[in-house]
Design a protein around this nucleic acid. Structure first.
Lengths: 146, 146
DNA sequence: TATAATTCCTATTGATATAGTAGAGTATAT
DNA sequence: ATATACTCTACTATATCAATAGGAATTATA
């Protein structure tokens, strides 16, 4: 698995929207500043996220973006796969691939399947609700420590 | 983590040598046929593996390659990192990277660190001795089932 | 109705990585 | 000598990545 800037921005964009969930729209411009992404690049990513059904948008003056589902129903693995493609470390372990002919190859296939499963266990069991609560928890800690 | 063809061939080459450990040299040509890799490409990979101290070679007539250590002392993670580079899913979790300024970014950093550790747990605890015994076990099963 | 703000859409670019291909040079057993 | 095999370097074609750019379409509001 390799997370690209697209993927990184996508996750950060959704977290940003999750942190503002139920509090109106967020513009690409504001978001870009907060997550430190080039705004025009972020726009492309947001457009993709819209096609993926993760976000909705409103055009025109005072337009912007918002989540199309509550943060609890958006899963990290789902987003990153949609943006960056399969998370498997090598194509031979991807679904739809025929079995290896050679047994020597198969021992590696098993290894990569393990890696693949371990990765999925993490990214498919993390929702943006959890991430939001992690952020707010962190912020409380910070406030106390000041 | 993404395993390239270079990495894939490197692992398969070392397994091939491990299966012939203590039984003389193996030529790039023979190996290429067995692991189904373009021979000239494999040569480049073997040269790298030599630089990495994983294999040794002998030139000239009846030359070839052999492992420079017993299979029990060669670890998958070591090889794949040497050939394909860091296995971290994103650069911000790599060693030598400064901490994130923004807390929002940090929740992802933690996530990718988890993925990174889970991956390392697997690839850094698998030796070629284990892979060899898996292969031979498999072959026994096959023989019985014939 | 004009305007400003905003999303939507597509094209282009520069850099880098990937997966080879090719060919000549060097060493060595017979 | 010669055949065989490793060594070294250069080259190429393709794809991916990370933007950058510019304008079209939409919408609230003055």
């Amino acid at each position: 698995m390799r997370v690209t800037y697209r993927g990184d921005y996508a996750l950060k964009a959704i977290l940003d929207l999750a942190l503002h969930y139920d509090r109106g729209l967020t513009t690409a411009n504001d978001m870009a500043k907060r997550i430190d992404a080039p705004m025009k690049f972020l726009e492309q990513v947001l457009l993709e996220l819209k096609k993926g059904g993760f976000v909705e948008s409103r055009r025109g003056n005072i337009g912007g973006y918002l989540l199309s589902r509550p943060p609890a129903k958006i899963i990290v693995g789902e987003v990153i796969r949609f943006i960056d493609g399969p998370t498997e470390p090598i194509s031979c372990v991807m679904k739809g691939y025929s079995n290896c002919q050679d047994l020597n190859k198969c021992v590696f296939k098993k290894l990569w399947q393990k890696v693949s499963r371990a990765t999925s266990d993490i990214i498919d069991n993390t929702t943006f609700e959890e991430l939001v609560s992690q952020v707010t928890r962190q912020q409380r800690v910070l406030v106390y420590s000041i």
